[in-house]
Amino acid sequence: MSDDLLFDLPATPRIPVAGSDRAFPVRRIFCVGRNYAAHAAEMGNQVDREAPFYFTKSAHALCLTGGRIPYPPGTGDCHYEMEFVVAIGAPAFRVGKAEAMEAVMGYACGIDLTRRDLQAAAKDKRRPWDLGKDFENAALIAPITPVAEFGRIGDQRIMLEHDGAVVQDARLSDMVWSVPELIAHLSGFYHLAPGDLIYTGTPAGVGPIRPGSRLKGAVEGLTPVEVGIAPAE
Rank of each mutant, 00 (worst) to 15 (best):
G154R: 14
H60I: 01
D21M: 01
V227S: 06
L64V: 00
S187N: 06
K133M: 13
I209S: 09
D112M: 06
G33H: 06
N35T: 03
N137R: 15
P73R: 15
A11H: 06
A41F: 07
N137G: 04
Y190M: 14
G74Q: 05
F24A: 08
V219D: 07
T65R: 05
A142H: 08
A170V: 06
T223D: 13
F30A: 00
R116L: 04
E149A: 15
L215A: 07
R22E: 15
G110F: 09
Q46R: 15
I153F: 05
G89W: 09
A122Y: 09
E220K: 00
D196G: 10
I69K: 07
S213F: 11
T12G: 04
L113I: 11
M159I: 00
M101D: 08
Y54S: 04
C78P: 11
N137K: 10
A230V: 01
A18Y: 00
C78T: 10
R126N: 14
L6T: 10
D3M: 13
V26G: 05
R28W: 04
D4L: 11
S58P: 11
A122N: 08
F24W: 04
E233F: 11
L6C: 05
A121S: 13
E161N: 09
Q156M: 03
K216W: 00
P208A: 13
V176E: 14
E161V: 00
E181R: 12
P208Y: 05
G221E: 03
R116Q: 10
I153N: 09
T145Y: 06
